[in-house]
Amino acid sequence: MQITILNAEMTYSKEDGYVGKVQFEAEGHSNQYEITLASKRGTRDWGYGLFFLHESGKEEELLALEDQLEEDDELFDLLVDTAKAKLEK
């Protein structure tokens, strides 16, 4: 799946751990997305939430993308790495 990154950010604190988000477009999808990422265990074991970025869209596209993220480690890692690259030092 081809994605285009629109924006990314990540912060770290002892209290919250790593918290980030990536805004992106997915090829063939009619809406843009935002994935929020969180990990309290270093940079592993990420929890995430996937949302439409601006307005609601087709639920089947969101669910298909979520399935893709669960199955495609490279795609998920790309989003995590993009957010980590923006980590405030």
Rank of each mutant, 00 (worst) to 15 (best):
E55T: 06
A85L: 09
E15C: 00
V22R: 01
L79W: 10
G49I: 10
M10N: 05
Y48V: 04
K58H: 13
T4P: 00
I35M: 07
E59H: 10
K21A: 11
I3T: 05
V22D: 02
K21S: 10
D73F: 12
Y33K: 05
D45T: 08
E74G: 00
L78K: 15
E27V: 03
E59R: 10
V19I: 12
T4I: 09
F51S: 11
K86C: 14
D16C: 05
A85R: 13
D67W: 15
D81G: 08
L53C: 10
L63Y: 13
A83K: 07
E66M: 15
D67Q: 14
N31Q: 09
E70V: 15
S30M: 02
Q2H: 02
E9V: 05
T36K: 12
Q2N: 07
G20S: 04
T82V: 13
E34L: 07
E61L: 12
D73V: 06
L37F: 06
K86R: 15
Q23F: 03
K89L: 09
A85I: 04
G17L: 06
W46C: 05
Y18D: 00
D81I: 10
V80L: 01
L6D: 09
Q23R: 14
S56Y: 13
V19C: 04
K86H: 07
E15I: 09
E59V: 08
G42C: 09
F24E: 07
D72N: 12
G28P: 00
N7G: 01
K40A: 11
E25R: 14
S39M: 02
E34Q: 15
Y48K: 03
E70W: 13
I5H: 01
Y33P: 03
V19K: 15
L53V: 08
L62P: 11
D45W: 14
G49T: 10
M1A: 07
I5S: 03
V80T: 00
T11P: 00
S56N: 11
E74M: 08
L87G: 05
Q68T: 14
L75R: 11
D77T: 05
E74S: 12
M10R: 06
K89W: 04
E27F: 07
Y48Q: 14
K14H: 03
E66D: 09
N7D: 15
A38R: 12
D72H: 14
F51A: 00
Q2G: 01
K21M: 04
Y18Q: 04
A26F: 08
L79S: 10
G20Q: 03
A38I: 07
E88R: 09
A64C: 03
G42V: 03
E27G: 11
L63E: 12
A83C: 08
K89G: 15
L37Q: 08
D67I: 07
Q32D: 12
S13A: 06
S39V: 03
E61C: 11
L69F: 15
E74L: 09
I3R: 01
E59Q: 13
V19Q: 15
G42D: 10
